[in-house]
């Protein structure tokens, strides 16, 4: 079987890698990973249990496949869990988060991450994180890039596939990359806040990604002042020493999403579309890639197929 994948974001590269691994002759049309793909700007949290607080069941279940898949592909996966904290006055939000998610235990944040002040937190030990750009590069190195499609076409163009998928919409996200040698945090930390929720993902050597806004917009322009203010204010509230951090980079892009924010595999004509990964690209792409391979090779109907 010969397959051509269009799109070299996280969806396209995972599908191509999985097919290649399972003996399919596969090539990718697209530019190797860079700032054009929204996955370039991702947090890289493999946090299905935390996502379960607001996302629907398939995200949690399918997301549990992700860490093992990435690690087996030779990507560095940091299995240090996720720490969820709130500010003192939002203690009720932490209790609610605990009630609406599973796979956590209550901890003192300072015992888990000594750099943080003492406060109640939730530790999701089964979760992990990776560095998206590193992961994309590992996958890209293992697939062939071509200019022309041959055989079965799999469309993984993300938001660009709106010309075919009319119910796809953009959900804009904005991020800030900072460097702060003074604060040693080794696992993703989520700060619950009624207006400015924040996550901080360590990238190693004092670099942290702060994210991410979620705005109903397909705008891909630079981050707004408001977004940057909110992210940085929340980071300051998490740890005052982050005020001394250097701002390395501002990021913004629009993620592709269907109305229920769940991914789909959809056949349109002869083309198989894999899309709508929303803010769960690195979390769900492995499961979707597996489903695509199972479908093409074994005839198994994917549960997210339409």
């Amino acid at each position: 079987m010969r397959v051509t994948v269009i799109g070299a974001g996280v969806a396209g590269l995972c599908v191509a890698t999985e097919l290649h691994r399972r003996g399919v002759e596969v090539a990718v049309i697209g530019t190797p990973p860079g700032p054009d793909a929204c996955s370039w700007w991702a947090g890289g949290m493999l946090a299905p249990d935390c996502e379960g607080e607001s996302a629907e069941e398939p995200v949690v279940r399918l997301g549990h496949e992700a860490a093992d898949w990435w690690q087996a592909r030779g990507v560095r996966v940091h299995r240090r869990g996720t720490l969820v904290v709130s500010l003192q006055r939002d203690a009720a939000a932490l209790a609610r988060f605990a009630r609406r998610s599973a796979g956590h235990r209550e901890v003192d944040a300072a015992e888990v991450e000594p750099a943080l002040p003492q406060r109640r937190g939730l530790l999701f030990e089964g979760e992990a994180h990776l560095a998206p750009r590193e992961a994309l590069a590992v996958l890209a190195a293992g697939v062939e890039f071509v200019r022309e499609a041959k055989g079965q076409v799999i469309d993984c163009r993300g938001l660009a596939a709106r010309d075919v998928l009319a119910d796809l919409r953009g959900v804009r996200g904005e991020t800030v990359l900072i460097h702060c040698a003074e604060v040693a945090i080794s696992r993703p930390v989520r700060l619950l806040h009624p207006r400015m929720p924040l996550y901080l993902v360590p990238r190693g050597e004092g670099v942290f990604l702060l994210g991410a806004t979620s705005v109903e917009s397909d705008g891909r322009g630079p981050p707004t002042v408001r977004a940057v203010l909110e992210l940085l204010s929340a980071a300051f509230a998490l740890h005052p020493a982050l005020a001394e951090a250097e701002v390395l980079e501002l990021g913004a892009d629009a993620r592709p999403a269907f109305p229920d924010n769940l991914p789909r595999i959809r056949r349109v004509g002869g083309v198989l579309h894999v899309n709508g990964l929303y803010r769960h690209g690195f979390l769900l792409a492995p499961a979707l890639a597996r489903m695509v391979a199972d479908h093409l090779l074994l005839g198994i109907e994917p549960e997210v197929m339409e």
Binding site: R169, G170, V215, S217, D218, G221, P259
Partner: peptide, 13 residues
């Protein structure tokens, strides 16, 4: 306001 960058998809919904 918040969607001034182009929330047309959401508005259509």
């Amino acid at each position: 306001r918040r969607e001034a960058g182009g929330g047309q998809d959401f508005w259509a919904l």
